[in-house]
Simulated assay, not measured.
Amino acid sequence: MLNKVHDFAALHVKGAPLVLYNCWDAGSAKAIVEGGAVALATGSWSVAAAQGYEDGEVMPLAELLAVVKRIAQTQEVPVSADFEGGYGDAPEIVAAHAARLAQTGVVGMNFEDQHVQGQGVWPVEAQCARIAAIRAAVGPDFFINARTDLFLQSDAADHAGLLAEAITRGQAYAAAGASGFFVPMLGQGALIADVCAQVDLPVNVMMHANLADSVALVKAGVARISYGPAPYRSAMQMVTQAAGNIYDGAAP
């Protein structure tokens, strides 16, 4: 297990990003590994949707842990789990939940700074306390990918004005014990480059329509690229289309 943890961390190389085509269950994980993936990561939206839940910690914690445990048990590559906001508020609660997650066999987690079932984001000091508590609970090597939702909760036109706060958060999260810094929905190459230059953690971006192209991301120094819910949505669209062909009489 320790080798998997170290292997996963080593895959995060500035300017040579680890690409994670996010899975949602053991079957999708197997298909993605067969496609050439060297590591796996779940996406909370996809995992929840695959079990009939909405995103946002609506899926019971026990069910989430069962899904990620099954993925980790059935695949040899390292697996990271999207753990949203840790299914709690207080540092001691999210730490206890993270310890349970680590026991499933995954090597890392995404941990976001938004109030998952509320509004806005946690103050920096409060989120750092939550990250520090998780670090104490999971040990020194477990990969905590600290996510800021500043850009996810704002329009792209406002992202430049949020950059300084995001960098402050990234630096603070690093000091609190984070292993990586995730900036979903930040798309401009120059802004991403600023984050990579000023935050001493591997920087993770998420694929979306307005994201800078791959050459710009490499040049910016990105170390991880995630696909989020896109793989699940694409797969379900294919299933719906195939079913439609059958029920419309276009296929036997």
Results as ranks from 00 to 15, higher is better:
Met238Asn: 14
Ile131Asn: 06
Thr42Gly: 13
Ala220Met: 08
Glu63Gly: 05
Gly105Phe: 00
Ile93Tyr: 01
Ala250Glu: 13
Ser154Val: 02
Ala29Asn: 03
Asn3Arg: 14
Ile93Ser: 07
Glu63Val: 10
Ala98His: 04
Pro78Ala: 09
Trp45Met: 11
Met1Gly: 13
Ala132Lys: 08
Val138Pro: 01
Pro140Ser: 08
Pro123Ile: 02
Pro184Ala: 03
Gly170Trp: 00
Cys128Ile: 01
Phe143Pro: 05
Asp248Trp: 11
Gln73Ile: 03
Ser234Ile: 12
His208Ser: 15
Ala175Met: 08
Ile93Asn: 06
Ala193Ser: 15
Gln103Trp: 02
Phe151Trp: 05
Ala250Asp: 14
Pro123Trp: 01
Val47Ala: 12
Ala251Pro: 01
Pro17Ile: 03
Asn245Gln: 15
Glu34Arg: 05
Ala66Thr: 09
Ala41Tyr: 00
Met1Thr: 12
Ala10Cys: 08
Pro231Ile: 06
Val94Asn: 14
Thr42Glu: 05
Val239Glu: 04
Gln73Asn: 15
Gly187Thr: 10
Gly139Arg: 01
Met185Ile: 13
Arg130Ser: 05
Leu201Phe: 10
Val38Leu: 08
Leu18Val: 09
Tyr232Asp: 07
Lys4Cys: 15
Phe142Pro: 00
Pro91Phe: 03
Gly105Tyr: 01
Ser179Thr: 09
Thr42Phe: 04
Ser28His: 04
Ala126Met: 02
Pro60Asp: 12
Asp7Phe: 07
Glu165Pro: 05
Gly187Glu: 05
Ala96Leu: 05
Gly88Asn: 06
Ala164Lys: 07
Ala160Pro: 09
Cys128Gly: 05
Leu211Gly: 14
Leu217His: 06
Asp89Tyr: 11
Ala157Glu: 11
Ala160Tyr: 02
Gly189Arg: 09
Val19His: 05
Val94Thr: 12
Gln51Tyr: 14
Leu152Asp: 05
Pro17Arg: 02
Gly170Lys: 00
Phe143Cys: 13
Pro231His: 08
Ala164Cys: 02
Asp25Gln: 10
Ala129Asn: 04
Met1Leu: 13
Ile71Arg: 06
Val222Glu: 04
Ala126Tyr: 00
Val183Cys: 11
Gln171Tyr: 02
Leu152Arg: 09
Val5Glu: 09
Ile32Tyr: 00
Asp194Leu: 11
Ser80Gly: 08
Val67Asp: 10
Ser226Gln: 08
Gly187His: 10
Tyr247Leu: 15
Gly85Met: 06
Ser28Val: 04
Glu57Asn: 07
Arg224Thr: 13
Leu2Gly: 12
Val79Arg: 01
Phe111His: 06
Gln127Leu: 03
Glu57Met: 07
Asp25Pro: 11
Val79Ala: 07
Glu165Ile: 02
Asp213Arg: 10
Ser154Gly: 06
Ala26Tyr: 01
Ala190Lys: 12
Asp213Trp: 10
Glu63Thr: 13
Gly36Phe: 03
Tyr21Glu: 14
Leu191Gly: 12
Ala66Trp: 01
Tyr87Asn: 06
His159Asn: 09
Phe181His: 07
Arg100Trp: 04
Gln241Val: 11
Ala190Cys: 10
Trp122Tyr: 15
Ala216Glu: 12
Ala90Trp: 00
Asp113His: 01
Thr168Asp: 10
Val195Pro: 15
